[in-house]
């Protein structure tokens, strides 16, 4: 009898706790439901809807026309161009960020923190404003252009080209690469490297066989954090790329605002979401745990 009573009490206590947890989480749950789940449902519904001759989207005659159009040359070209730019941005970020993260994580803790703050300072001002600032730096008599031509690397005019887009993206997303890399390099047990060196591994060998594998979670996390937003980037291509030769992000915006093709815009969004979902899954399986 007493045992049963205790069990009942425990059960009750657990239920109270769970109810309390639910109530505490309620605002966030409602928020996500209203501003994320329902809109996502609408996007998915739109992607199967019909576009009328006047450009209206009607939620009837459900069809997969918008998905069929994803196979068109135009859409394929946009997708591959975005993919290429996102891959390039990720690689450039990785090449720039790895030595930096390595350098930071081997400093003394005080210096380390200062440098990390330095990496994050750009976030203190708005991304849009910073992108417009690049437009000033990149125009014909801008600082960047002058510096490049002064060192003799061509005339330095890259505004409204894909190089300017990649430059803007690398600039914007570099911290997303540095921070996870730092996090995983920083926790490497350096005695392993010492061990490798004691066993006559060269510096390069010790890096390739010890440091690199141990920092891989950071590499994967950083690459995904850079790749995913680069693939859907909208502001940078519009401001630094001159809004031509569409990339995925701008192409989707064009579908909704200019072309008023809701279903196509929605189906493209679903595809981008799919790409991001795959990226996130990889992130959780390989890198997420160690962060």
């Amino acid at each position: 009898m007493p045992a049963v009573a205790t069990q009942g009490l425990e059960h009750q206590a657990e239920r109270a706790k769970s109810r309390q947890g639910f109530l505490l989480g309620l605002p966030a749950i409602v928020y996500l439901l209203v501003f994320f789940v329902i809109p996502l449902g609408i996007v998915i519904a739109y992607s199967f809807a019909t576009r009328t001759r006047s450009g209206r989207t009607e939620l009837n005659d459900w069809n997969v026309e918008a998905y069929r159009r994803l196979g068109e040359d135009v859409v394929r070209a946009v997708a591959f161009r975005s993919l290429w730019i996102a891959v390039l941005t990720t690689v450039v970020c990785l090449v720039l960020a790895y030595p930096l993260a390595y350098f930071i994580s081997t400093r003394s803790p005080a210096v380390r923190n200062m440098m990390l703050v330095g990496v994050m300072i750009p976030f203190w001002s708005n991304f849009l404003i910073r992108t417009y600032a690049w437009r000033v730096l990149l125009d014909s008599d801008g600082l960047f252009t002058q510096m490049v031509s002064a060192v003799g690397l061509g005339d330095g005019r890259i505004l409204f080209t894909s190089n300017a887009v990649i430059l803007g993206l690398v600039y914007g997303y570099l911290p997303f690469m540095v921070l996870p890399l730092y996090a995983s390099i920083e926790r490497i047990d350096w005695s392993l490297v010492e061990g490798a060196r004691d066993l006559y591994a060269s510096g390069w060998m010790a890096f390739r066989r010890v440091v690199w594998p141990l920092s891989r979670p950071g590499v994967i996390a950083g690459s995904i954090l850079v790749f995913v937003p680069s693939f859907g980037a909208f502001v940078t291509p519009a401001i630094l790329g001159g809004n031509k030769k569409g990339l995925m992000g701008s192409y989707i915006v064009d579908q909704f605002l200019d072309a008023r093709n809701g279903p196509l815009g929605a189906s493209l969004s679903v595809v981008v979401l799919g790409v991001m979902l795959v990226g996130t899954l990889i992130y959780f399986r390989q890198g997420g745990r160690t962060l």
Partner: peptide, 16 residues
């Protein structure tokens, strides 16, 4: 009228 949408589609295609 109904032809309107062709202008938006044409511009969208031309630059992508």
């Amino acid at each position: 009228g109904d032809f309107e949408i062709n202008f938006t589609d044409a511009l969208s295609r031309a630059r992508s």
